[in-house]
Write a protein that binds this DNA or RNA. Structure first.
Lengths: 341, 341
DNA sequence: AATTGGTTCTGAACCGTTACGGTCACTTCA
DNA sequence: TGAAGTGACCGTAACGGTTCAGAACCAATT
């Protein structure tokens, strides 16, 4: 029976035809995929865990790029891609337990997320992205700290000392407002924590007292958040010469807010982003480009690569500083340099 | 055992604790999701079948919108979303057979696609999108014919008679070039067939000989295709006053080509799209807006709605003609009307 | 003391498939 | 002619959970 469907060479064509005929006559709908999975211990799918609402993945350009890369890898391997719903509000990890998959990819979740813990308990291979190295599972990511450090050095080189920062959520609780040093340090999102620490390091080295730099956090990641966060930073210190945003989306919002206030970018205010999404490129944003598609593909490859001689593995992809039209020397500084002593 | 995990009320807390303790000590990783699915006959996931490469879904804005809506519905229901790889090149339907899902959503595949046939053979509920009404399964879509008819009437009202058309692939075979009337009529993509027939009807009613209108097809759906297809139409008949594109993406490409030729839009050439994606709105494109997100959500709702009193159901979502800045009266016509007799 | 009622706990059947070993007929070779 | 070898076919035992019937137990009632 099984052979008739899956192993035509194991039986005579005549019998095969007869079996298939009677099967059809009896209304047999073909082998049941679930039972097959149980028996063969292969689900033919990999699970993707995102901390955000499922639909968020389709709204954020960087997430879309990641998904595309992951889908590419799955396609090559002929496996399906199961999007696992993980509502961050509820602590309901049943969706993780119910997912019939051969492995998990975990994309940018807080390191204390119960869903992540549930995944790690499952006896299947896992690849985490944009997470700290856990020592036990494969990892793919970038050097967020180093990339942001370079961006900061670019700004410092231009002469910026008085800056403001807009970042994404740092933990699971909503905190739309200023961020204490404590909170920065304890951020549960590896990516944000490292970007902030890269900034802090560079500016501290340049003699800036980091504890006095206004850092504003937003829970939701969209243009509107960038706008309101930029407004909050500019209200707190109208003297800042540069606004460093931890994502392009936030930076695009900041651009809107700058325009609303009549601030010319980069003449009156330098604005930078992070990610290198298409929209940022179109806007000429100074940013750090990271290979999001490649990241997804690498995650999939790592997961689907069967010969696991050296697990856990860790892949670091390279980033590139893109100097666009939104960063320049601060107004005062350039004149000072020009006419200075 | 099972009760200890899933039915805490069925046994004393003391026994439950003991069971869970020993389970942990034995390294038991929790109930196996596949075995559970087999027994309960519930996979906790719905499958999405796209005819394109999986990764394409993340490149096309309309597809992304659809996915977002579908993800939203899945989220509400707490089910996962399995992206089923269906390589259009290979006739390999094994991926459909192997998908452990409670139902399928089929999005815009040719009506003769073997993957679609394989889905319909599976004994699970199915919702088809942008497909002809099959009579046996639920359907969600729009009135492509009527929407395109309205758009054509808008153009006809403006005075356009000599037009060209750029459409997406009409069948599984690649045909990058002109389309015969025969091929238009026999198109295996319901959406494209209806859009073209809406155009043909409107223009025929206006006294235009449809068989003389150049219609150019492109297999790949991206900006570059729009560019080259527009070039092909304009080369074939430089006198056309309007270029009707069957998607916004193609229209955006056509805009590029018009610019390259020094044609001012809409002064020298009217260009229209279809879909109403964000990029089109930004460009001020005259187009038909269809609720892609709503379409995905409706498909998910239909599939996950358990009380199936009136299957098969058919949902038609409404569209809206958006008159943008890319359509105007043809140069000759407007003068004629202004200074005419 | 025996019956009843209720709760907690145990064991076995079943979901549908695949892997595997065994049977059987038939060919080949000494 | 008989032994060994080959290939086609078939029966059965897991895979790991859920479910449900009924055993076992305890307390309350007759």
């Amino acid at each position: 029976m099984s052979n008739a469907y899956n192993r035509p060479d194991q039986l005579s064509p005549e019998l095969r035809r007869r079996v298939l005929d009677t099967a059809r006559r009896l209304g047999y709908p073909g082998p049941d995929p679930v039972a097959r999975s149980l028996r063969t211990r292969k689900a033919g799918a990999v699970g993707l865990l995102l901390t955000e609402n499922l639909s968020y993945a389709f709204r954020d350009p960087a997430a879309i790029g990641f998904l595309e890369g992951l889908a590419l890898a799955c396609e090559d391997a002929g496996t399906g891609l199961l999007l696992v719903p993980a509502n961050p509000e509820r602590e309901d990890v049943a969706s993780v337990h119910r997912a019939g998959v051969d492995g998990f990819v975990v994309y940018s979740v807080p390191d204390d997320d119960p869903h992540l813990a549930a995944v790690l308990e499952r006896p299947v291979p896992t690849v985490v992205c944009d997470q700290p190295d856990m020592g036990t599972v494969d990892r793919v990511g970038i050097d967020d700290r180093g990339a942001m450090y370079s961006l900061a050095q670019h700004l410092i080189g231009l002469g910026h000392r008085r800056v403001g920062v807009v970042c994404m959520r740092l933990a699971r609780d909503r905190n739309d407002g200023f961020v204490t040093a404590e909170r920065q340090h304890a951020a549960h999102f590896h990516v944000q924590r490292n970007r902030l620490s890269g900034l802090a390091e560079a500016f501290s080295e340049a003699g800036v007292d980091w504890s006095r730099i206004p850092v504003v956090e937003r829970f939701d990641h969209n243009i509107a958040s960038g706008e309101s966060a930029a407004a909050q930073v500019l209200d707190a210190d109208p003297q800042i010469t540069a606004l460093i945003c931890c994502s392009d989306i936030l930076a695009l919002g900041a651009m809107n807010e700058a325009a609303r206030r009549g601030l010319r970018v980069p003449h009156d205010l330098t604005i930078t982003g992070f990610d290198g999404i298409r929209e940022a490129e179109a806007a000429g944003l100074t940013t750090v480009r990271q290979p999001v598609l490649e990241k997804g593909r690498a995650a999939g490859k790592l997961l689907l690569d069967t010969n696991e001689r050296t697990r856990p593995r860790s892949v670091n992809l390279s980033t590139e500083l893109i100097v666009g039209k939104t960063s320049a020397a601060p107004r005062g500084a350039s004149e000072e340099r020009w006419f200075g002593p």
